[in-house]
Amino acid sequence: MAFDAEDDRTDEALLALYGRGDAAAARALAFRLTPRVLRVAARMLGDAAEAEDVAQEAMLRLWRIAPDWRSDGAKVSTWLYRVVVNLATDRLRRRRSVPLDAVQEPEDDAPGAVGRMIEADRAAALEQALLELPERQREAVVLRHLEGLANPEIAAIMGVGVEAVESLVARGKRGLTKALVDRREELGFGND
């Protein structure tokens, strides 16, 4: 979405204003776009500190491109999502040497307490299962089902066709379901 409750100007209009030196436009853009950038980075990386670094770097690139931004029909948010995904992917590749077992487990002090997990545990379980997916599937699922983007926009972000996105999302969801089924009883879905 290019609009928010505080400012009905589009992302593109705000970026153009910032490119001409408007400090207030930067503030509006930062408060609008940083949450999205951080969410994607966090889901891709599974590490809060690294996600913050990626979010800051992505926004820095946005500030730098502002004076030269040429809309040509492109959306700022699409461009920014692509930057975040690429930055996160770079970091994942750098840490390839770290075995999967070393990925931090979400805190899970009382699994299945009194037969029912709280919502936070389900969210943590999903985030953990996401980290076990191949990167491209993870990107597609995060953008489609957690960010709520349409497939054509995801295709533009990932640099693939819409059919490839559909395939990645479908395979990603199957992978998530398989990973979560193993913990179904534990997570309070035993009777579903």
């Binding site: 889901r43 800051q56 936070a120 969210a123 979560l180 879905f189 579903d192």
Partner: peptide
């Protein structure tokens, strides 16, 4: 089942800190 997990994850989205 998966949709319940996705809904939970959407509701628990990380928010930018003041420092960030």
């Amino acid at each position: 089942m998966l949709e319940d997990f996705l809904t939970a994850a959407r509701a628990r989205a990380p928010e930018p800190s003041e420092a960030l």
